[in-house]
């Protein structure tokens, strides 16, 4: 399939006469898209179709039964075990998104308001740093930081905020903290970019009309940066949905989210459960993206 596409490409390019530019302009984008389309087809569409097929089979006593059935779907929808996994996944993604926003928005604001270019550069680098570091290294870092005898707990106790150690790792807290950390750049930069698009005269106009800093922020800056916030939510939420390594390492086996469940199912060669799990993830992601796009359109109207 992919070979046919790429092979056809040069033939088309040669056959176009120079003067028929209109036609050529129509074809050129497709030519450039061809490699990625081929890749998508091979690595995404075909596996998805296979998955789709498998999702209608059942797995019983270690055996795959290749007969059409909706059993696996039914189990995902109505079995409390799977329901919990889906809800936990959504909960974790939501918490992560909220935390990333809570930290990321002020950071974006600071980055926007900083006057000196060198300060801007350093702050950008700091915001970028989590994705420069390997996920494994970063996760171990968080484990050390958040451990019962780690510096965070030590500081909490030192400040007299707690008596015993607070469990911050090998549970949902650790996973959410670590994920929010790595998603920061994906949250900060869309928001920052929506801030730079605001005409500086708008804030001056608000102040000129009697609004102080807080009122100006609430009535002008915040509403006009909502598109950036929605984009950030979209990215953070969908990334959190698919996160695998971080929940595996920092969840300590206590945070069972869909990607982990899918992984476990594949290692049990339980293809139908893995397939339905994957499809559920995909559907949730699509719904979130669609919902966000709706919000975006609404906020721009």
């Amino acid at each position: 399939m992919s070979e046919a596409l790429t092979a056809a490409a040069p033939v088309v390019a040669v056959a176009v006469p120079v003067h028929r530019r209109g036609w050529r302009q129509k074809v050129a984008p497709w030519l450039m898209l061809a490699p990625s389309l081929a890749l998508m087809l091979y690595a995404f569409v075909l596996p998805m179709l296979t998955f789709f097929e498998y999702s209608f089979y059942t797995f019983r006593r270690g055996k795959l039964i290749e007969e059409f059935s909706l059993t696996t779907y039914r189990r995902f929808l109505f079995d409390a075990y799977y329901q919990t996994i889906v809800l936990d996944t959504l909960w974790m993604a939501a918490l992560t998104t909220v935390l990333a926003l809570a930290i990321g928005y002020p950071l974006a604001y600071a980055l926007w308001r900083l006057e000196r270019p060198w300060m801007k550069r350093w702050l950008s680098l700091i915001i970028f740093s989590p994705i420069i570091v390997s996920v494994v290294v970063r996760s171990y870092g968080w484990i050390v930081l958040l451990a019962d005898q780690g510096p965070v707990n030590w500081a909490l106790k030192g400040l007299g905020l707690t008596n015993g150690p607070v469990s911050l790792v090998f549970n949902l807290t650790g996973v959410v903290l670590s994920l929010a950390h790595v998603f920061l750049p994906f949250v900060v930069f869309p928001i920052y970019s929506s801030m730079t698009r605001i005409d500086p005269a708008l804030r001056e106009a608000a102040m000129d009309l009697g609004a102080g800093w807080a009122r100006t922020f609430r009535s002008v800056t915040l509403p006009l940066t909502l598109p950036g916030v929605v984009a950030a939510v979209q990215i953070a939420f969908t990334l959190a949905l698919g996160a695998f390594v971080t929940p595996a390492m920092l969840g300590g086996g206590r945070v069972l989210v869909l990607p982990l469940q899918v992984y476990n199912a594949t290692s049990d060669i339980n293809w139908p459960v893995a397939a339905v799990g994957g499809l559920v993830l995909l559907v949730i992601a699509i719904l979130v993206v669609a919902l966000c796009n709706r919000l975006l359109k609404y906020s721009e109207a």
Partner: peptide
């Protein structure tokens, strides 16, 4: 004082 800005600076939203 109140100002009428060069490009008006109306709140677009």
């Amino acid at each position: 004082t109140n100002m009428v800005f060069q490009r008006w600076a109306l709140f677009p939203h």
